[in-house]
Amino acid sequence: MRVISPQTQAVIKRFRASRRGYFAAWVFLALVGLSLVAELFISNRALCVYYDGHLHFPTYGVELPGQTFGLPYNFETNYRDLQALFKKEATGNWVILPLVPYSPYESVTLKGEYPPSPPDILKRHFLGTDTTGRDIFARLVFGFRTIIGAALLYTLGIYTIGVLIGSLMGYYGGWVDLCMQRLIEIWSNMPFLYVVIIITSIIKPTIGLLLTILILFSWTGMTYYFRSATYREKSRDYVAAARIIGAGTLRILILHILPNTIATLVTFFPFTLAGAITALTALDFLGFGLPPPTPSWGEIIRQGTGALSAPWIVCSAAGALVGILTLTTLIGEALREACDPKAWVTYE
């Protein structure tokens, strides 16, 4: 079994010592965790329904038509109405609704009221509704889930490609390095935004497509760091030793050199994440992102800037964006401090 190396232990200790960053990291993890089970507190489906001696748990699983609960229709039950009905009938049946009893896709409007409507705690629209009457809080949370998942995949994608190609360039050097550098220079000069705009206006964008485009145009930045780090490391004795005992290129790169260069990657991680969130939000804001009705922060900000008379729309999304970016920046700073090589490596 592999124990955590003393160096790593030191890094963790330093990270914990930075109170701000440590706290931010926990908040961030908690938010991600909560968003994964968002249906439990934000959903138009009830958490639990007791009807005629049977318990139903509609949150996850198949759609329960109204007829299941004695209602005269066979499309999905409206649990808010059902709760009101059960209360009125007082026959012992009950419904437990989530904290926010609305789905992010559902447009809730009452006769005589025109969306957007301001925050209303009694109606459980904690951040109000948008211009088509959908709950903003629900859209923010589900939008967060999409964007954070996408940002993580994006980070994984560009690190895998960037680290691999960068390390190979540094390790082989010479013509390989020279040619790859020129290729990367050309590639990184392609106007990324235009490519996205052209592609998404021709075909229907999906999250996978957007991610692929984003990754294809963003991996180049990482190669520079890993090229130079590998270049430095490969002349060290331990690499020579590994080569002598017959280790292959990939083995040397991944098992021997990478652990010694990984600190750069760790410190970049939160900033890459923040960059991905901003990029996806910007694309949605410009209308080249995910197709409607996918909940997304950029889309909410766009709606909000078009309806400044309803300030809660733009404030909610902008606030959430600022909040998440602040959290990632705090974590990033703490990580950088913790991984700072100058603090614990002595060069001879």
Partner: peptide, 19 residues
């Protein structure tokens, strides 16, 4: 794509009721 696309999402959601 444009400012009116949101209203089609309303139609989309309601059409779910009809299967």
């Amino acid at each position: 794509n444009g400012p009116l696309q949101e209203m089609y999402t309303l139609l989309q959601n309601e059409a779910d009721k009809a299967g």
